[in-house]
Each structure stands twice: as C-alpha cells, then as structure tokens.
Design a protein around this nucleic acid. Structure first.
Length: 632
RNA sequence: GGUCCCGUAGCUCAGUUGGAUAGAGCAACUGCCUUCUAAGCAGUAGGUCUUUGGUUCGAAUCCAAACGGGAUCACCA
C-alpha cells in the first residue's frame, strides 16, 4: 500500500502542491497506537521545502489523496502527521490473500544465493554447556531464517578433533581409567556413561594431575632444585624471578602466571601428552586407534545431545582433515607480496594500514596456526560448493578480532566473497552468580539443563494441560516440546550480540514472554478450529471491524519480519514478532466471541483470522526450531 | 594503554532508514472462568533512556567527550 501511495505522490506531486516531490521526503510509518489511521506520512520535509506550516501541507495532500486514491477512505491531520485511513475492503482482501498463501511469509526456495552457516563447532574434550546451547540454537535458527528468506543453506560445523587437548584426555584415560576384571578400561558401553561425558571426565582428570605436578615443579624451583629442568626453562625462570623484585603486586601476579606457564611445560604429564600428539601426527597405530575410539565416543554423545536439541548438519569438517590446509595459500600469498617473511622464517601480514596489528600466519617451523587453518578451510568450502556466496560463522564475541582479521586477509588474497562473510558474534551467557567457570564448577551442562526444563514442563503440563485425549507417547512428545520450546525461546528472544543473563527459574516459566505462552495460544486456536470445522465460510461476505483490522495488520507484517530477521541474522526479531502477534490475538480472543458470534460475516472473518494467526505462529516457531503442539 | 561491544522501570529485555504520550514480561497490588483451553485477559503502580555537550522542526536512536561494565590485543585453539 505504501509503495502504491508513494508512486501516486511522486506522479501527482507537482499538480497537487506545485513543486516536484523528492523521493526522500516520502517517509511512511505505521500509525501510532490509539490514533485513528493505518499509515502515517511525515509532512515535515514537505513543509520545509514549501515554507508552509506542516498542518496546512498535510491538509492539502490529504484532501487530494482521499479524493483520488480508491483504497484511502479518510485522512486525519494531527500535529505534523498525516494519517490515512484505509477502506474496509482493503483489509478483507488482504486477509484473503494471506489465507490463500499456504507458505505465507516464506520466500521461494533457492531464489537467493547459497549461504553456509557454521555453528556448534565444539571441542571434543568437554561436554556441551549452556554457552553451546545459545550458539547452536542461534546458528540453527539463522540457517532456518536464511532458508525461509529464499537462500539455499548448508549447515555445517567444524569438529576440533585434533591437537593437544584431545591427547590430554587420551593420556589420562590410558593412565587413570581403572582396568576392569575383563581387562577393559572404562568405556561408554561398559559404564553406561555418555561418551562425551566420559572423555570430559578424563580431561578434568588430566588437568588435576597437571596442577599437582606444576605445584611440585614450582616447589622444587623455589628450593633451588633444577635437576629435571631444561636449560631454556631455567634461563627464563631466572630471568622472570629477577623481574619479580621490586614490582607492584599486579605486575608480580602477571609474572607469577608466566612462571606457572613455564612450570607447566616442565611437567612430565604435559610432556607425555605432547609426545602423544607427535605420535598421533606420525600416525602411530596404537595412538591412532585410541584417538579414533575416543573421538567416536564423543561424537555419539554429541549426537544424542544434538538430536534432543532438534538440530542437524548437512556437512561436517573435521579439523584432523583440514589442519594442513592454508599453508599453500600462505605461500602463494607470500609470493604475491600479500605476506612477508621475517628472518627467522615466520610469515606475517601487516594490517596496520587497516587499523589492525601485524599478524602471524605461519610459524617459523612451517606449522600452521589457528588462522592459517581458517584461511584454508574457508577457501576449501568455496571449492566444495562452487555456487556458495557467503559463510556465516556462529562464534562467540571474544573472537571478534580474529574474524575481522580473517576476512581482511581473505579479501587481500583476492577473494571477493570475503566481503559477504559474516561473523555472527553473540554475547556470553551469564548466570545470576556471575560468569560460568569450569574451575569453579559453575558450568551448566547442556544435557542436565535440557533434562531439567523438560521435567519442569512435565510437572506443569500434568497440572494444567488439556491432555486427557493424548496417548502416553504423545504426552512425552508434548512435554519435550514445551520444555525445549521454553528453553529455545528464552535463549533466542534476546538480541544475539548482547551478553545475556540466564536465570534458571525464568527459563522454565510458562507465562508472559515465553515459548510456552506462544505454544499455548497456538494450541488454543487449534482447539477452536477443530470445533469450527463444520462452519461454512463465505469469503466474499467477510465483515471486518477495528479489532480484526488490528490483527490483519500484524499478520501482514510477517513477511517483512522474516526478511529483516534474515538480513540482520537475528532470530530475536522473529521471536519478538511472534510474541506481539500472540499478545494481539489473545487480547482479541478474550474480548470477541468467535464461534459464538451471531453475525455470519463477522464470524467467518474471525475464524479466518484465527486460522492464519495459527499458520503464522507455526511457521515462525518452526523457523526458530520450536515445536507447535496441537493440544496442550 | 590501543581496538571493539554494551549501558532503557526493582529484575530480565523490546524499542533498525531520527518522529507523536519510551513499551513488554517478571516481581507487587485490583478485578474477570455457568459461553470457544484462565499457560489467558483487563487494570493500578513503577523512567533524569548513565552523564554532559553538539547536529535539527524533532534524539533512547546520529556525532563528540566523560563515567561504568565486558571482550580482545599469543609462534593457544
């Protein structure tokens, strides 16, 4: 409508107000609540150009529009705002259009370019926690949004299955897992422990032993015993120890940390883990076997978690396959002068002209660093998918700098798609007690949390739900939907880039701005519609009143909301829209009889509206990864 | 210290091309189930939009500075 109005204004402008209208003057917005009108035109720019009072200009334009535009029934001028009132038939037409489109709000599949969305990408040495939940729900929802917006989407994750961290778990398991009577060590199969939890347990075990040994080393050093210490460590220790003298407390703490780091490298257990990494890289059969077995346990554990979360992936990248990538690109870039080499052989890029620092891209010994891999992996992905246009990386905001550097390097290497890549940077999830810290045991485990929210939903639903007609299986599905729906909505309703607080009590709330509130409204509409099945609807005789118009307006905003949420990588925009729609519908439902309405035309319109609110709620919830139950 | 992000009601959060009287939820209080699911609805109360200055018809929104919180600044990943 606004587009049509704009065209009319542009073409008739001179005739009506005497001067040509600049397109930039035409600014529409929805008319404010409580004021009569459907769409508002700002007249300040016109008033300025014409050197006339805004009210006078508004009156002038309003009169012409009312008499010459068929769908404008009336207008009203308040202060500098010109409010147009649309005709009733416009709204019933709008409703029918929405109703006839089964995939209302969804763009044509594959009408836009291919996008890859990376999310999850956990380490394989620790179970998933609350932070991962935000990451994964967010990444999945953004992938869904992009799809709904017409993009072809590849969901992917990188599995960090190599490196010293996994060797730590392997070593600890090999050393400390008790041998059982049948000669086996602890496995998921013989202990019943989830694979990722088992491996995580031994990672913690490793850290414990490491800390103990660090203490021993420090004690020895302080006693002047350097018998097992490497010459270089001894030298550095003496240097740092000297530096401690006469420093402030804060500076001393920094130095002490460095000494601790130094001591770590002198422990037997860390050296053993490093040896293991070397053996792994040399494809030592025994080590390799253990590695693939333990990784397998972790994957099985993660799969269980992902399944419960309702997410999946189209393509997996294993770091053990990709960690050698990127070196060629670096050498190529060096030849082309994008990078430069220091005397020790290490390769760098100077980003100071772009306001960033110098960055190492390849070590002196020729091995890759984190960003080398990322360069290689990105390029590899564009080879894997020739029609790929962009990659979205769902990674915490502590890596903002890393991705800024990565995209810049890729651009400097000549890849124009680097401009399309996006770091979906999200804030940390805090607890009421503060930050999550593994050392203090305040990490909220993903599996435990999901279990808790589903249990809470079960209790509440058994208390309040209308579930008499459901079978046992159906009930369990419902409890799962409500618990998980609440959790997902809770994490998704907040603007991704903001740090958020996770309050366990609020996360299982069912009232107010929550997932179950929206699910409940959906279920209630379905109950209504089941009873309305026999009512005949004459679409040509709908009666629309102001309450109906309010809802049609909200419904009509759905496609634009999807587009905005997709363009801004923000499921929160969609979540908040669904909440608005739900509130508007509930208010309507409470004050207007639907099936009991005597006026046939009005009843038909209300049923149609209910149907389409349900349709939009379901579409929207599905995009967010939330189930929409038919009854609850 | 450099760079980046954030600061809105007691708490958690919306508020996206600058627009009318800054909105929700939770918590508190008051009403509404003999009619379509009360996980609901209607209402009361709660604000110096961190502060100061600037841009303009108009600023929570844009700019600058200050204050407060966070992240980052590894030959770790």
């Amino acid at each position: 409508m606004e587009v049509a109005l704009k065209e009319i204004l542009l073409s008739k402008g001179k005739e009506w107000i005497g001067i040509d209208i600049d397109p930039s003057w035409i600014q529409f917005q929805p008319t404010r609540k409580g004021v009569r009108g459907d769409v508002t035109l700002m007249v300040f720019p016109f008033a300025k150009a014409l050197q006339l009072p805004p009210a006078q200009v508004a009156e002038l334009i309003g009169k012409h529009v009312k008499s010459e535009v068929s769908f404008v029934a009336d207008f009203e001028v308040i202060q500098g705002f010109l409010n147009f009132v649309f005709s009733e038939t416009l709204w019933s037409d709008q409703l029918i259009t929405i109703h006839q489109n089964d995939s209302f709000g969804i763009a044509d599949p594959d009408s836009k370019q291919m996008v890859m969305v990376e999310y999850a990408s956990p380490n394989t040495n620790k179970p998933l926690h609350l932070g991962h939940l935000r990451n994964i729900f967010l990444g999945y929802a953004v992938a869904q949004l992009k799809k709904a917006h017409g993009h072809q989407v590849i969901k992917t994750q990188v599995i960090n299955d190599r490196g010293i961290h996994i060797c730590k778990s392997m070593l600890a398991w090999h050393r400390f897992a008790p041998l059982q009577s049948n000669g086996e060590r602890e496995t998921p199969a013989n202990s019943g422990l989830k694979g990722d939890k088992l491996v995580g347990k031994y990672y913690v075990e490793f850290e414990k032993h490491l800390q103990l040994e660090v203490k021993e080393v420090l004690a020895r050093w302080n006693a002047g015993d350097f018998s097992n210490t490497s010459a270089s460590a001894l030298e550095k220790f003496q240097e740092l120890d000297q530096a401690l003298v006469g420093k402030e407390e804060k500076a001393q703490a920094v130095i002490s940390d460095k000494i601790k780091e130094l001591a770590k490298n002198e422990t037997e257990i860390l050296r053993a883990a490093q040896d293991m990494l070397v053996r792994w890289e040399g494809r030592d059969p025994e080590t390799y076997l253990m590695w693939s077995a333990m990784n397998g346990w972790v994957y099985e554990g993660f799969d269980v978690t992902y399944q419960r979360m309702g997410v999946d992936f189209d393509k997996l990248y294993y770091e053990s396959d990709t960690f050698l990538l990127g070196k060629d690109q670096v050498m190529d870039g060096l030849a082309r002068g994008v990078f430069y080499q220091k005397p020790d052989g290490s390769i760098w890029i100077d980003l100071t002209p772009d306001g960033l620092d110098e960055k190492l891209v390849l070590r002196a010994d020729g091995t890759a660093v984190y960003i080398t891999q990322d360069i290689g992996t990105a390029i590899e992905r564009f080879h894997d998918y020739p029609s790929l246009s962009a990659i979205v990386y769902t990674v915490g905001n502590e890596q903002d700098y890393h991705f800024k550097v990565l995209f810049l390097i890729l651009y400097k290497l000549g890849y124009s798609w680097a401009k399309n890549c996006f770091h979906l940077s999200y804030g940390m999830v805090d607890l009421p007690s503060g930050k999550m810290k593994s050392r203090e045991g305040t990490v909220v485990d993903a599996d435990d949390l999901m279990e808790e929210v589903v249990n809470a939903a079960t209790v509440m639903t058994q208390e309040r739900g209308q579930i008499a007609e459901l079978s046992e299986t159906e009930r369990n599905v419902l409890f799962e939907s409500i618990g998980m729906g609440g959790l997902k909505y809770y994490l998704l309703k907040v603007d991704p880039k903001k740090r958020m607080l996770f309050n366990p009590e609020e996360s299982i709330d069912l009232t107010g701005n929550t997932g179950p509130f929206i699910q409940y409204t959906y279920a209630r509409i379905n109950s209504l519609l089941r009873k309305a099945e026999l009512v005949e609807i004459d679409e040509s005789a709908l009666v629309i009143e102001s309450g109906e118009i309010e809802l049609i307006k909200v419904l009509a905003a759905f496609p634009q909301t999807i587009a905005e949420a997709a363009d801004n990588y923000s499921p929160a925009l969609l979540a908040n829209y669904l909440y608005e729609l739900t509130k508007a519908y509930n208010s309507f439902y409470q004050q207007s009889p639907i099936l009991n309405e005597a006026n046939e035309g009005l009843r038909a319109a209300r049923i149609l509206i209910s149907k389409n609110v349900a349709k939009v709620l379901k579409t929207g919830l599905t995009i967010l990864g939330i189930n929409a139950p038919e009854r609850m």
